[in-house]
């Protein structure tokens, strides 16, 4: 098993995508199927941007084993009022500023859901959100 972790700063769009690029490099070196690698990286990128756009700060914990990849993003932030609503395509609470930067189209969580085998969201309003994404490697 292998563990990686990364820190994210809220509002730092310049570095959003750093963790997903690093994780991608690792998965390629581990000979993980390119299609699975892409799904993992796409969902991690979305989740990273979510933290940058909405939270104050966060941390990413990645656990890679031969049968699954678990990625947990834990943030300190406003939390999500209604998780089910946030999962809907097109629903967004992103500020005008964030949208002008080309983010906040409201596809984030829906896209993550599509690209992971298991998605768990725990959120507490005014405290923060934990997003857990699990991808299985040994299904065929």
């Amino acid at each position: 098993m292998m563990k990686l972790d990364y820190k994210i700063e809220g509002g730092d769009f310049t570095n959003a995508g750093h963790a997903s690029s690093e994780v991608k490099k690792v998965l390629k070196k581990l000979n993980v199927d390119p299609k699975i690698t892409r799904r993992v990286v796409v969902s991690l990128y979305e989740a990273e941007v979510n933290v940058v756009a909405h939270a104050y700060r966060g941390e990413i914990f990645v656990e890679i084993s031969t049968n699954k990849i678990i990625i947990k993003l834990v943030d300190e932030g406003p939390g999500i009022h209604n998780v089910d609503q946030a999962m809907e395509e097109g629903y967004s609470t992103a500020s005008e500023e964030v949208r002008q930067m080309g983010f906040g189209a409201g596809m984030g969580l829906a896209n993550i859901n599509k690209n992971t085998d298991e998605l768990n969201i725990y959120s507490e309003v005014n405290k923060g959100t934990t997003v857990e994404m699990i991808t299985y490697l040994d299904k065929n």
Partner: peptide, 14 residues
């Protein structure tokens, strides 16, 4: 780019 074709070994090598 892989370090080894076997994932377990690749992880150790990494």
């Amino acid at each position: 780019m892989m370090l080894d074709s076997d994932m377990e070994t690749a992880m150790q090598k990494m």
